[in-house]
């Protein structure tokens, strides 16, 4: 994460990939108590990832990142449950101990990032789609849409912020 904060794309991706299973386990464990399914788990995971991404400026590099992530996940869990009409307090959990039961995974459909993207502006949607579906780089996307690289970066960042806002508003 420290490397990612100075803009190292590869280190950042590796960090996000490493942290996602943890998020999933915490979310599943908490949500199963409320009989909420895998789709809800995945929503929380995605929402937490977005929050980690957009708020990473609030992490201080000299502090352990575990508690920081735990609080974010907990907040997102509370948001998700509240949106569904529950009112609960989720205790902070130790992230580190929870890696184990990643086995039985999901096969569900329903809302995912694809459907959220319908709410984005067309240009933003094109950019997110190009980067997520085709895995093309910012430079290629910029060339294809005949935009400058900087403009693509800005639009991408805005798109992520509005995705987070869409989650928060629960307009899905």
């Amino acid at each position: 994460m420290a490397a990612a904060l100075v803009g190292d794309e590869i280190a950042y991706r590796r960090f996000l990939e490493a942290v996602t299973p943890h998020l999933r386990v915490i979310a599943r464990r908490r949500l199963s108590a409320f009989r909420l399914g895998n789709q809800d788990v995945e929503d929380v995971v995605q929402e937490a990832l977005l929050a980690i991404h957009l708020k990473r400026g609030t992490w201080e590099t000299h502090r352990p990142i575990g508690p920081w992530i735990s609080v974010i996940v907990r907040n997102k869990l509370i948001d998700a449950l509240r949106r569904r009409g529950h009112r609960v307090v989720v205790p902070i959990d130790d992230v580190v101990d929870l890696i184990a039961d990643e086995r039985q995974d999901v096969s569900t459909d329903g809302q995912d990032i694809e459907r959220m993207m319908d709410h984005l502006k067309p240009v933003q949607r094109d950019i997110v789609r190009a980067i997520s579906l085709d895995g093309s780089s910012v430079r290629d996307t910029a060339a294809r849409l005949s935009m400058s690289e900087g403009a693509v970066r800005v639009a991408l960042h805005r798109a992520l912020r509005s995705l987070a806002a869409i989650y928060r508003g629960g307009t899905t």
Binding site: E9, R13, L16, I113, E114, S132, R153, H157
Partner: peptide, 13 residues
């Protein structure tokens, strides 16, 4: 969806 999201987030690094 989540994997794609990570892909996109990493591009916004």
């Amino acid at each position: 969806g989540t994997d794609r999201l990570i892909e996109v987030l990493a591009k916004d690094a």
